[in-house]
Nucleic acid binder design. Sequence first.
DNA 1: TCCCCTCTGGGCAGATTGTTCATGATGATC
DNA 2: GATCATCATGAACAATCTGCCCAGAGGGGA
Lengths: 155, 155
Amino acid sequence: MTFDALDARLLLLLTDAPRLGVLECARRLGVARGTVQARLDRLSADGVLTGFPPELRLDALGYGLTAFAVLEIAQGRRGEVAEELAAIDEVCEVHATTGQGDLFVRMVARSNDDLQRVIDEVVGVPGVRRTSTSIALSTPVAPRVRPLLERIAQG
Amino acid sequence: MTFDALDARLLLLLTDAPRLGVLECARRLGVARGTVQARLDRLSADGVLTGFPPELRLDALGYGLTAFAVLEIAQGRRGEVAEELAAIDEVCEVHATTGQGDLFVRMVARSNDDLQRVIDEVVGVPGVRRTSTSIALSTPVAPRVRPLLERIAQG
DNA sequence: TCCCCTCTGGGCAGATTGTTCATGATGATC
DNA sequence: GATCATCATGAACAATCTGCCCAGAGGGGA
């Protein structure tokens, strides 16, 4: 499985203008249309490119608050707890981590009251021992992959 | 600015099949093509829908390790530190938070050695006081918005 | 040298896009 | 109750793009 500069340039292009057609991509990259099609197919087949999910500004949707929680889990109940967390709509991301905590959770909410409710729900999951939460005040660097792609593209 | 069930259903549809054409969306939603077009335009104009970035599996790209760091920052140097962090390619996300730490960082790396290097780079940013890092062992819930959309769509 | 793989450039029929228009339905305003 | 603005519909148009096919060229490895 290879990933060359052309792949990276293609993905960068699609990052900037994701609903671009194959033909237009080919033009901008200076390659044949079939090449772009083949690359996209291959990237998908290899599992590198898993999709183009819509990127939403949750705050514009009413979910203006983001909070993080570190959960300490009772012995051997991690999987079970993770499942319960996944069932909570406002839980947007869960990682199992090394270190002080066992699970790391990102969640969103509409208001302070709403956040209180979500947090209660999260820490109320059976198997959760100790928790510590903090609220995101701002996001200096929003989730991104661009720099890595640019490096591969020899930007 | 409104966001109704149709908008949510449209976005869900695009979540599942992002490179779907407008016409096909219209068919599946059972509405006229112009309606879908208008909705997409409006969502973009309103800033709710900011794009369709390609979703990559970084591990398939060689970046198999994800780590989190909580940084305590020297008084009044948060902005400055955030800028420095943004300049590090492997830093994929930074949040300013309340609570024990001041900045929360997500980063990726190719290997343990590589991670060591990245961490050194991060904690070496001038203005960073104390740090604590942990490695993501698994990701039970990958970043998602789906449940919230489904709720709005009255799923 | 030969083989394999990829990229290229072309062509084809069929589908899709952006756009515009007139027509209803809905709901708010006066 | 009448009027107006807003939004969805369905249809039409030319232009473009898609998926698919093919033959040929070039580079790398056996």
